[in-house]
Simulated scan of single mutants.
Amino acid sequence: MIRVGDVLVSKGEGGVYGERELDGYRVWDPYRSKLAALYLLGTGIELPPDMKVLYLGAANGTTVSHVADYVEVVYAVEFAPRPMQDLLEVARRRKNVMPILADASCPEQYAPLVETVDLLYQDVAQPDQAAIALKNCVFLKDGGYLILMLKTRSVDIRKEPAKVFRDTLDILMSAGLTVNESTWLAPYHQDHAAILCTK
């Protein structure tokens, strides 16, 4: 990962979401991107130039744009039409972003469009977040990585976030994934945790 001093950055065309530039690089804002928060609070993984990524919950393309600055291709799945309009603009400016309007809980909808990937990134705020991630592991190569951005309040608002977190870890490990890192994302994102697994 590229840093200027202690600031996480990426190298690509700026002006995606009003981000600052530093020494010719785009500043990757941890308040706008949970992945940036993971890199600042935890370890994360390297994003090499030959990496293929399936990104679930692409939204407006903020984090997608930074990931695309590093990797070979990002298959960006988003369900809502409004953020998809912004995502299409990101894809227009970055030829390695493949926007897909589809429901991440139904991977069969986009199976014909997606190849085997090195990283599955899941940021879909649904009660069945873990199940959605596991369904999409069909695209993930053996030895590949899953990064699940867990929004605990979306899973079950009645439960303590720590309980939702532990339950999610159990689900992922029971499915045969190896949990490498788990990091709460406060102060950047409250009640969110990043879980990094290997298939």
Rank of each mutant, 00 (worst) to 15 (best):
R3L: 05
L8M: 04
V9H: 07
G12Q: 12
E13G: 12
G14C: 08
V16H: 04
V16M: 09
Y17E: 15
R20H: 10
E21N: 03
G24Y: 00
G24C: 02
R26V: 10
W28I: 03
P30C: 01
Y31I: 13
S33V: 04
S33G: 06
G42I: 00
G42S: 01
G42H: 00
G42M: 00
I45W: 00
L47T: 06
P48N: 13
K52D: 10
V53F: 04
L54P: 06
A59G: 15
T62L: 10
S65I: 03
H66V: 07
D69E: 13
V71H: 07
V73Q: 06
V74E: 02
A76T: 10
F79K: 15
P83T: 08
M84I: 06
Q85W: 03
Q85D: 15
D86F: 13
D86T: 09
L87Q: 11
L88M: 13
K95G: 12
N96P: 00
I100M: 01
A102Q: 07
A102S: 06
A102N: 04
C106G: 07
Y110K: 15
A111L: 12
A111V: 09
P112I: 15
E115Y: 09
V117C: 01
L120K: 03
Y121G: 01
Y121L: 05
D123W: 00
Q129A: 03
I132N: 07
A133Y: 02
L134D: 11
L134F: 10
K135T: 02
K135S: 09
N136R: 12
F139Q: 04
F139L: 11
K141L: 09
L148Q: 14
M149D: 11
M149Y: 02
T152M: 11
T152E: 12
R153S: 12
R158C: 10
V164F: 05
V164E: 10
R166T: 14
T168D: 15
L172V: 02
S174E: 11
T178D: 13
E181M: 05
L185D: 02
A186C: 08
Y188W: 00
Q190S: 13
Q190M: 10
D191S: 04
D191A: 05
A194L: 01
T198F: 00
K199S: 07
